[in-house]
């Protein structure tokens, strides 16, 4: 009897502690979910507010206290479309960011391959040096770049921006690809070589399929960085090659009321990349955590 009692007590206490443990796990999850949601909402709020402002009139946009409920108006959108052709800028943004990304991948894949699988004693130094070029503020090289572009006839051309964005993103692309490639066991490539694969075949048939999520997320990041870049696009273009960042800049002003129009222009400018980001977020996350768990 006493044994059975003690057994049942033990079972009960085990059940209690198990349920406590379960509850604490649930609590932990709940807290984490709440924290994640709060952070997500805080991060999304400025974008939400911008979209909301874009449907206000200029007077409502600067009203204090700001109104959350109002009659939406598309006046801002109509006015900005009358002043500048959105589609021309959007097409430039698409061509330039995709072009720069493809070009960067084309150069970065072979370089990351050689650094990851055939390192020399200077590889680490080279990688660090590449990254250090990102530490220089862009305006420091504005004049030389402007003069080179002028002499090569690249000012206000998509080709010019594609080249500059490719150069700008190359260090990051090489670094990311390098870390992804490093995670691939050398043995796999060696096995391929034993079977008679050439270097190109090795890259195309073994390396690229194995690291595809990583390459995809690197490419996506490169597209986003090129899309949002505003310094070079403002300084090296006038009208023919001007992308959406230049389009937004033309609605900012130190004089007069412009918040609703600026918000409408910004909403239109980020809409494509935002949708693109949502559609590809699985690949992004998969790529960025690729090889993280061993």
């Amino acid at each position: 009897m006493s044994t059975s009692t003690s057994n049942s007590v033990a079972a009960a206490s085990a059940a209690v502690s198990a349920s406590r443990a379960r509850r604490s796990v649930i609590n932990k999850k709940l807290v984490l979910t709440l924290v994640a949601w709060t952070i997500a909402l805080v991060m999304f709020f400025p974008i939400f507010w911008m979209i909301l402002t874009s449907f206000k009139t200029e007077a409502e946009a600067i009203a204090t206290p700001p109104s959350l409920f109002f009659t939406p108006s598309v006046e801002g959108y109509i006015e900005i479309q009358a002043r500048a052709d959105y589609f021309k800028y959007a097409l430039n943004s698409v061509v330039i960011s995709l072009g720069a990304t493809l070009l960067a991948l084309l150069i970065a894949i072979p370089s990351a391959y050689s650094m990851a699988f055939l390192p020399t004693k200077r590889t680490q130094g080279t990688l660090l040096w590449m990254l250090s070029t990102k530490m220089l503020p862009s305006v420091g090289v504005l004049l030389p770049v402007y003069l080179i572009f002028r002499d090569l006839g690249l000012l206000d051309s998509r080709t010019g921006l594609i080249i500059i964005y490719m150069l700008m993103n190359l260090p990051i692309v090489v670094w990311m690809l390098y870390t992804f490639f490093k995670d691939i066991p050398k043995d796999i490539l060696e096995a391929g070589r034993m079977d008679g694969a050439s270097t190109l075949q090795e890259i195309f048939h073994l390396l690229l399929p194995l690291t595809l999520p990583g390459i995809a997320s690197t490419g996506l990041l490169c597209v986003i960085l090129s899309w949002n870049e505003a310094f070079w696009s403002l300084n090296l273009t006038t009208s023919n090659a001007a992308p959406l960042t230049a389009y937004i800049a033309s609605f900012s002003s130190p004089e007069g009321l412009f918040w609703a129009k600026l918000s409408a222009a910004s909403t239109l400018a980020i809409a494509p990349i935002l949708i693109f980001g949502w559609m590809t977020q699985k690949q992004m996350v998969r790529g960025l955590t690729f090889g993280a768990v061993k």
Binding site: R83, A84, L234, N235, T238, S239, A242, A246, A249, S250, S252, S253, P254, E255
Partner: peptide
């Protein structure tokens, strides 16, 4: 062909 910019950005450009 128009290039419209905010005063300070325009000045630098």
């Amino acid at each position: 062909d128009w290039v419209v910019l905010e005063e300070n950005v325009l000045r630098q450009r």
